[in-house]
Simulated assay, not measured.
Amino acid sequence: MESLKEIITFMNIDSRLDLKAVAVSHILSLTGCSDARSLIYKCPEVIEKLLKLTVDNEGTIAKDALLAIVNLSADEEGANTILEKAPNLVVECIKFILDENCALADAWAMILSNISRTELLAKRVMNDIQSSEDKLLEKLVSAFTRVDFNKKNCHLNYLGPIFSNLSQTSEGRSKFCNLETKLLSRLLPFIYHEDSLIRRGGAVGLLKNICFDSSRHSWLMTDEDVNVLAHILLPLAGPEEYTDEENDKFPVDLQYLGADKKRESDPDLRKMLLESLAQLCATRKVRDFLRAKGTYEILRELHKFECSEDGDKACLMACENVVDILIRTEEEIGEDNLKDLDIPNELADKFEKMDSNLIET
């Protein structure tokens, strides 16, 4: 602790350049260690100094200070501490992200992603965004959808996880599903963004969170601009051939896919897409829609893939969970809304443990 206090004496804007650079570089190296980060949280003056140095005139110092904040904000404790010391941080992050000539916009986006990761933090960030009259969320979506937005070679991929984080909140879901701004329909195509796993993951996470809200299921299925089912099934589909009768059932985007069609390669994203489908299976109306649109047929072929050596056990189980619902008749299911079923906590814990054991074997 004493050594930290000595170091921060050199971390002022007007400190000697060489001493300041060494001090910030040293702090940056410490933030890579969890024990050191815990020590820094107990000395919040370090965070105050780093925040001020993120706009230092010397680019290297500003970058190191910013990267240190990125590392510190990765922990929930650090994120809370940083927000306490910088209550205007959310708006500041967005200001730099939206600056087309900011060479450190990606680092600012990483910070905003970190400080919105948990649902509680996401609510705080969403409140700050909504308190502004500048339509900040709409502007962030516009920047994200313009791949060449930043002129300093910043890709802004971490806006994807930010959108996913914010959709944990009811306020966030309402903003993304707004019929006038159509933010969701603008973001869903990034589910197929081959150049960035981070962008794809953000788009899939956003979709999954919105699918948890059963009040929106009917709209998600029927709105032509959103076209959610196609966005879920297309990444799960591979180069398999289907009969003409099966193709006729599929959404238009999935009909007669070529032999070069590639399935989503990341198992975590495939699992999230399957979990989105599982949420959509909540009501009978949507279950009937899924069956009519050939969802089972796509999952039948996905199941074969997940059973192969290239497949994934967690994805296989998620796939079987959805298939198990779709192949049953509604009389067998016996419930219009599956979310109305009251499953005792001890049974839910038992099922979760059984699933974990099956995945590990």
Rank of each mutant, 00 (worst) to 15 (best):
L316C: 06
E330A: 14
V91F: 01
M11I: 12
L17S: 11
L316Y: 07
G172D: 03
N88L: 05
L206A: 01
E245M: 08
F149Y: 07
A86N: 05
Y41G: 00
R186G: 01
E100P: 00
L274H: 11
L229N: 04
V252C: 11
P44C: 04
S25I: 00
N345T: 13
D260C: 14
I94R: 02
N247W: 03
E246A: 10
K5F: 08
L53M: 06
L280H: 09
L166S: 08
V125A: 12
R200F: 04
L188D: 02
L83R: 11
T60D: 06
S131P: 00
S170K: 09
A259D: 14
M126F: 01
V90T: 15
I82K: 00
P267W: 12
T9H: 11
R291M: 04
L67H: 05
K353W: 12
L302N: 02
C154V: 01
M1R: 14
C177T: 11
D253N: 10
K304N: 07
A86F: 04
L66S: 06
E119Q: 09
C307E: 14
E6T: 08
C102W: 06
L229H: 01
S3A: 10
D35L: 07
D349Y: 04
L72I: 08
E194R: 14
V24A: 08
D128R: 05
S265D: 12
S276W: 10
L166C: 05
E246H: 04
N101M: 12
S196M: 02
Q168L: 09
E58D: 07
E330W: 12
S164C: 07
A230Q: 05
C93Q: 01
L28H: 15
E240C: 12
V141C: 07
S34G: 03
L206E: 05
D324S: 14
K123R: 14
V228L: 14
E224Y: 10
